[in-house]
Design a protein around this nucleic acid. Sequence first.
DNA 1: CAGTTATATAACCAATATGGTATATTATCT
DNA 2: AGATAATATACCATATTGGTTATATAACTG
Lengths: 110, 110
Amino acid sequence: MMTTYEALADPTRRRILDLLRERPHLVGELVEQLKISQPLISKHLRVLREVDLVHVRQDAQRRWYMLNAEPLAEIDAWMEPYRHLWSERYDRLDTLLNTLQQEEKQDDQT
Amino acid sequence: MMTTYEALADPTRRRILDLLRERPHLVGELVEQLKISQPLISKHLRVLREVDLVHVRQDAQRRWYMLNAEPLAEIDAWMEPYRHLWSERYDRLDTLLNTLQQEEKQDDQT
DNA sequence: CAGTTATATAACCAATATGGTATATTATCT
DNA sequence: AGATAATATACCATATTGGTTATATAACTG
């Protein structure tokens, strides 16, 4: 069985989610937008369904797929303790760049 | 070549990152902590190195692996527009259904 | 009912990932 | 130099994945 992480590992599936974030889509709409064969879209949707990242509502022969973002909360929670780490790094880079710029300025003044 | 998403898809690699978040580790320490064969740990480290999630510092025959959280920023950025969605969902009609499904999943996971 | 539309599934293939065992590499120590 | 320690890589078998084409299912339409 798939995990949410594995489901997100595929770029096509991320693009599907990005489209569903705006509004629910029919399978055919996704096929058209992403220019990917219908069976393959259906396969990806199956994976997304399995990890509950999408919900479906049937409407005659059509199926409306809609986003369910909730499983992403798990990943968000995993990332939480990492989040300050790359900002720290940027801060340090920032100070370094500032320092260099200061030095340049002083060089220019001569 | 791997993406950051794919690198995170493997649970062992996530556990490695979790350990490195606390402090740098030697390969042997990771082997001991995770109880996974040394070659396999090395392989996973190679993947993490390829996507730049870890940096290495050599110290005689030993190698200190340390976390580089920066590539996670990309994923964090991708998740950003989703983040408000899983809190908004609470006032929807299918909240009850979702909740029940989530509970079932969580029960399964234990 | 026959035909059409929308989607899912089956069967198959190629490429890749995973995990195991054996071996190579590199540095240190005696 | 030979032995040892720490880590990386090679090689192999198996499983999984992403993709294709063909077919099944299910609902609507004339």
